[in-house]
């Protein structure tokens, strides 16, 4: 079913309509156990991914693990976070695949994707700039302002991703 006033800026609507009617999509959507299991995996993997990211961000803000070198927190916790992120992406893609049209038309889903990109860019920028010189501030209990800014932005953006993801259950702003 195509909502009457659905905006299709990306032009992907026909593709998602096709995807929604593939056998796999229907099977996940109608499954009794598989869908809840995928969704539970997606939610609980938050601990593995965002839990580790949040600890690193709090370290960058000088709020937690203040006497542990920043490079140690990043070096040891980011691999765990990446493993969590991989699970989030796989489970998230399966959830999207189970109902592409419902997700695509949802404003929260669109904002979530935008914030996901921004969070990624923030992390990339951090690693390409201030983190390159981490040796100079590795042991600082209170890191430089630019590192703090990256940590704060990361917390805000990833929290936004989680909030939008949860709010996707609601169709408040749909035509």
């Amino acid at each position: 079913m195509r909502p009457a006033a659905m905006l299709d800026y990306s032009g992907l609507l026909p593709f998602f309509e096709w995807l929604e009617n593939t056998a796999g999509s229907v099977a996940i959507r109608e499954s009794i156990l598989f869908y809840p299991l995928v969704e539970t995996t997606h939610v609980l993997t938050l601990c593995l991914f965002l839990g580790m990211i949040a600890l690193l961000d709090l370290r960058l803000l000088g709020a937690a693990l203040r006497r542990v070198p920043v490079s140690e927190v990043a070096g040891r916790l980011l691999p765990v976070a990446f493993a969590g992120f991989a699970l989030m992406v796989v489970s998230g893609l399966l959830l999207f695949y189970s109902g592409p049209l419902r997700a695509y038309q949802n404003i929260f889903f669109r904002v979530k994707m935008a914030m996901l990109v921004l969070a990624g860019l923030n992390a990339l920028l951090f690693h390409l700039t201030i983190y390159k010189r981490v040796a100079a501030w590795d042991l600082d209990a209170s890191p430089p302002v630019r590192a703090k800014l990256a940590g704060a932005l990361s917390l805000v953006l990833w929290s936004g991703v989680v909030v939008c993801g949860r709010m996707q259950a609601y169709n408040w702003f749909e035509p």
Partner: peptide, 25 residues
């Protein structure tokens, strides 16, 4: 949900350490 992520993170970081993973130093 956001508190879940933080609770999970703080539990994990200590439990992983006890398993010899994560912040091993």
């Amino acid at each position: 949900l956001l508190a879940l992520a933080l609770l999970g993170g703080t539990v994990l970081v200590v439990d992983l350490r006890m398993l010899g993973l994560g912040l091993r130093a």
